Amino acid sequence: MSNVAHPTDSTTVAERVRELMNRHGIGKRQQTTELCRILDLSFSQGHRKLRGNSPWTLTQIKRVAEAFGEPVGQLFAGQLLDPGVLGASAQEALLCVSVAELPCTAWIGAPAEAGSRPEFVAYEKQGQWRVVRPDGSLYQNAHEVHKIEIYPRRAEADKPVIAVVDDDRASADNLRDYLEHSGYAAQALYGLAAFDEALESQVFDGVVIDWLFGGQTAADSIRRVRSSENPDAPIFVLTGELLTGKASESEISQVVRHYDVACYEKPARMAILVADLSKRLNRS
């Protein structure tokens, strides 16, 4: 579990990161890519974080500041501290409750004075801050703890988001379920209109799309992905109509060449498709 800034601060932190990148000459269209590089995120993760829709960990804030040579305190201290913890510093720590050890952010103050009775104290052990309730034991160099923040892990937000586009609901749902069991967050979209609408407000880390939708092909939607905020998202075209002649081999080959897409025949070998996707997303 990560140590995160307060959720209400996520929007402000994101705004400050965008301002920081602007100062350093990172254009708007390059900012998500740069954030993903610094923090090792998927594009959709970076996109949500840079818009304040995903919580920021203390480590992530520090890494961004350090990447641009900016003092983290000057950039974010106002967001990470409140009047009740002035003089304390935010540190990643483990909150030790019985046998459980919960990662947290702890605001650690001055050394605890002899005879004081703070509710929590923190001490360092092998380079790791540990937060405990005083139980009469002697903790060497114990410090007062002013504030502790613990947040549950948002597992879905950490997964690359894959669009599965097919007007056959059963096929879309089956592939979506397989992707989710393989560690992805997958979204089934039943037709080109639904997919095109989703592209207006979302970014995807990858797209798996059927080729034929009635009398239409997926070509225009593929072009939209390549001109979207994440133009490098891997795209996989599925078709079961090459042998029947309904799907044009020349049209598909043209899209493959011009837009760097992979083509799989239906029914797709899901394990092979997911292995290819993972490789293209550097998750193998």
Rank of each mutant, 00 (worst) to 15 (best):
V72F: 04
A67I: 00
S54K: 15
L50I: 10
T59Q: 14
E70L: 00
V64S: 03
P71M: 06
T57Y: 03
G73W: 00
Q79C: 14
L81D: 08
G46D: 06
R63K: 15
W56F: 15
L50F: 07
E66R: 10
Q79S: 13
V64H: 01
N53A: 14
L80P: 05
S54L: 13
A77P: 04
S54D: 12
L58W: 11
P55I: 13
E66N: 12
E70R: 07
Q60P: 01
A67F: 02
G73V: 02
V64I: 13
K49V: 02
G69P: 05
K62D: 08
L50P: 11
P71R: 09
L58V: 09
G78W: 02
R51S: 09
N53W: 13
G69T: 09
K49G: 04
Q79F: 10
L81S: 14
G78D: 15
Q74V: 11
I61K: 02
V72D: 09
Q79E: 13
F68R: 03
V64L: 05
F76Q: 01
A67D: 09
F76K: 01
W56T: 07
W56E: 02
G52Y: 11
Q74M: 12
G46V: 07
I61Y: 00
E70H: 05
I61D: 00
P71F: 04
R63S: 13
K49D: 02
R48L: 15
R51K: 13
K62L: 07
P71I: 08
P71D: 15
E66T: 11
Q74L: 11
G73H: 04
L58I: 08
F68V: 00
L80Y: 12
F68Q: 01
L50H: 09
A65E: 05
G52N: 06
L75C: 06
L50R: 03
L50S: 07
G69I: 02
L58Q: 04
R48T: 10
I61C: 11
L75H: 01
H47R: 08
S54Q: 15
A67K: 03
L75V: 09
G78Y: 04
R48Y: 05
L50W: 07
N53C: 09
S54T: 11
G52F: 11
F76C: 06
G78E: 12
N53I: 07
R63Y: 06
Q60W: 03
L80K: 06
L58P: 00
